[in-house]
Amino acid sequence: MIPTGVLEADARKQAALDLLVRYVRVVDDPRRIEEWPDLFAAEAEYLVITRENYERGLPIAVIRDDSKDRICDRLVIIKQFWGAGGRAEDHHYNAGWPRHIVGPTWVESGDAGQLLVGAHFMVWSTAAVDGSPRLLVVGEYRDVVDFATGAPKLKKKTVILDTSILQDVFVYPL
């Protein structure tokens, strides 16, 4: 017989991994991007930073959405600011299909029932402007997944980019 606690831990681990998969499907699909803020907890942080700045302790980040408000604002920026003259909500200045490739993924226990999820990832983007596939970034996810409300939510997502020279600008979150 399997003890209840173990079953629960396995279920939470699976839920955290499912959240990562859902995250990737949302950020890779312009039609689902409105679901993105909902993947985060009510108080949450989304940080994209180059390894260079991260390891030197420099505060400048590519994206520092350090509140749920800023995470929600990103959606407004994506849909309205970058909407290529507002012609269409899903038509952007550098329209293209982003494609996350997520490699090895690991889950560890954190504080207060949270789980720490790490993964290697890369993003290819096939640009509409010339049809070329572009390796956008290579890096590492360090997620803190919170279960305070039952469902898994991102308390903090830190995206560390090995590619300290970004190969292109990008629209959708990494």
Binding site: V48, A61, I63, R64, I77, Y93, N94, D168, F170, V171
Partner: peptide, 26 residues
């Protein structure tokens, strides 16, 4: 901290008003 939060969010590769320049110039 205000400068840290504002700078790249406005004038940076993922900032509110830089992406368009890249797109137009490309």
């Amino acid at each position: 901290w205000h400068r840290v939060r504002q700078g790249p969010a406005v004038l940076g590769p993922a900032g509110a008003i830089t992406l368009e320049d890249a797109a137009a110039l490309e």
